[in-house]
Nucleic acid binder design. Sequence first.
DNA 1: TTGACTAGACCAACCGGTCGGTATATTCTT
DNA 2: AAGAATATACCGACCGGTTGGTCTAGTCAA
Lengths: 206, 206
Amino acid sequence: MNAASDTKRRLLEATYALMLRQGYPSTSVDEICTEAGVSKGSFYHFFKSKQEMAVAMLEHHMADAQEVLEGGLDLTGVKGPQRAIQYVRHIEEGAEEIWRDGCLIGSFALELAETNPELREKVSQIFRDLADHFETVFTPLSQAHPGPNTPSPRELAEQLIMVIEGGVVLSRAHYDPRYVPKALRSFRRYLEMLASEQVVDAHGSD
Amino acid sequence: MNAASDTKRRLLEATYALMLRQGYPSTSVDEICTEAGVSKGSFYHFFKSKQEMAVAMLEHHMADAQEVLEGGLDLTGVKGPQRAIQYVRHIEEGAEEIWRDGCLIGSFALELAETNPELREKVSQIFRDLADHFETVFTPLSQAHPGPNTPSPRELAEQLIMVIEGGVVLSRAHYDPRYVPKALRSFRRYLEMLASEQVVDAHGSD
DNA sequence: TTGACTAGACCAACCGGTCGGTATATTCTT
DNA sequence: AAGAATATACCGACCGGTTGGTCTAGTCAA
């Protein structure tokens, strides 16, 4: 609506689209401006620097990450380990679409860990927040589980993130977006094995 | 010995060290030359372009990848599923050291998939070769396994690669090299669960 | 008239890559 | 054996183009 905020939004989205595919260092400010159909003056009116733009873009993008990830998911009434399993199954379904062009956070982590401390810290924080959220999903499964070898909810949350990121790497390497859902499927089966282990006196079949 | 080959080797190793940390686009030819203590003229005497250097460096580095990965590992007499499990356990031990500064192939995959088709193809080929090799390690485990849901050796090989790459992403993001061994440990436990499933009539304790 | 916004010329620094030239070692000719 | 010719290794100034970022002039709604 407002022309100003529209320009800003278009800059944010152009930056997202370009950096998702090419990464941070390979995406130039000029390129972003061209893609957004905006002049460089506008870019530097709204953002102090390329780096600050990247931070803003990450925040802008992560704001509706939960919606993208969990849209259409209904877990009401789903209790215990099944909650985690259903959750992963849902992500699995959207995975090919969501990570088709890569994963911004993962790319930034690899590209900028050494060269850009501020952005690395931002990426670290996003991963932590994400793990915090996943943790709540895995808590029931982990609690229902007895053994000392059982992964904690935190470990499972981080495993989920790693499984996705690993899948993205292979997807990009082979130009085949199916690696992420494949990775998630085997992670889900792993969860199912975990869940079936402690069911000794009662067993519910799927 | 030979001064010429020494210069070339130093260039290759400087390129490896720098690109491992900073990635391909953020590493300049000048920087490589300075690190190697060599002039730019020498660089372009031995390598046609930055890209060709990257390919040469990948090949140079992957040449002794198997030694790095499997050095000191002895699997003679280890049969069946235990072969895969011991193998992963061994990689687990060296993981923190091996992937402390990241993973070249994974970084290249994310950074260059869209911008550099030749390097992406090279990376793809390296991952395929790696999967081919891992496949042989997982074949006994997979064969001893009955169910239709059992992952194929190929799937397990690719899972191993994804687990490592995912671990590297988190390691870089949080500046904590322990994520890779952690990821490998849980992958190994997953293999152990797979292995214990079909062992109904016989069970060997560790 | 003011102040948010836009346009795009402009800047120094840096990029990958080239070029002319030098030093050194090897091979060929006599 | 001596000298000429050749190939290889190496140097660093230099090139056109691009980078992130600045600056000034101007637009336009309130």
